[in-house]
């Protein structure tokens, strides 16, 4: 498939997924309910105790990771369950479908993060010293989770017990990303030199890029 046709088809798949989501906002609702519930439970449990920035960052990313797993896993699974996966595969290239699904998952996660992260900052009384660095970390973290999560969603879509399998399989692969995300978020909370964060942000970007390229090759065989 030519590059332009690939991108056009991917964009069309992305728009279709968004349109379906707006009609029956199932995935977004599940993600939001899960994220807000976890946030409230943790917030009440911690109850005003001043936490270390690293612990705060870890809590945020544990919450974002498990929230993502409940929603991103649906990217391919939903198509398999409703019987539309075969029709889609007949219509276009696997790579176009994958790119469209990554875009959709990314937008979904960023949408959740836009609501959840400010709420988290308010509930835990955190005033990040470097808000822009925090925003960049969250966006790059969401990108990495979307890319990797969508790949594993494509893998587990063919089997039963997808939800738990998805988390078990993807966690080791996402561990480096989460590790760096926690470290960068912690620094953004506490405040430091922005230049010192550049390598970590670059790592998160290249992690997504490398996973994306490897996944494009992989999805042809699924």
């Amino acid at each position: 498939m030519q590059f332009c046709s690939l991108i056009k088809a991917a964009w069309t798949v992305f728009r279709k997924d968004l349109r379906c989501e707006f009609r029956t906002p199932l995935n977004f609702s599940i993600l939001m309910i899960f994220a807000v519930t976890v946030l409230m439970v943790v917030s009440f449990a911690v109850g005003g105790i001043a936490l270390d920035p690293t612990l705060l960052a870890a809590l945020l990313w544990v919450m974002l990771f498990f929230t993502a797993m409940t929603g991103v896993a649906r990217a391919y699974v939903q198509e398999e369950e409703t019987g539309t996966a075969l029709v889609l595969r007949l219509a276009t290239d696997s790579a176009a479908i994958y790119i469209g699904k990554v875009l959709y998952s990314f937008v979904l996660l960023v949408g959740v993060a836009i609501v959840v992260v400010p709420l988290y900052l308010v509930l835990f009384s955190v005033a990040p010293a470097m808000p822009l660095a925090l925003a960049a970390t969250v966006v790059l973290g969401c990108l990495g989770i979307a890319v990797t999560g969508t790949t594993f969603s494509a893998i587990v879509a063919q089997v039963t017990a997808q939800g738990s399998l998805m988390t078990v399989l993807s966690f080791p692969v996402m561990l480096p990303l989460l590790w760096i995300a926690i470290s960068t978020t912690s620094t953004a909370f506490a405040g430091s030199n922005l230049v010192a964060l550049a390598p970590d942000l670059a790592f998160m970007f290249f992690y997504s890029g490398m996973t994306f390229v490897a996944s494009l090759v992989l999805v042809e065989y699924l």
Binding site: K16, R23, G83, T84, V87, L88, T92, A96
Partner: peptide, 19 residues
Amino acid sequence: LALYDALSGLENLAFFAEV
């Protein structure tokens, strides 16, 4: 094989035509 329940018949065909 199934088409998208959330979309109308016209939207389904328009989507597949575009893709």
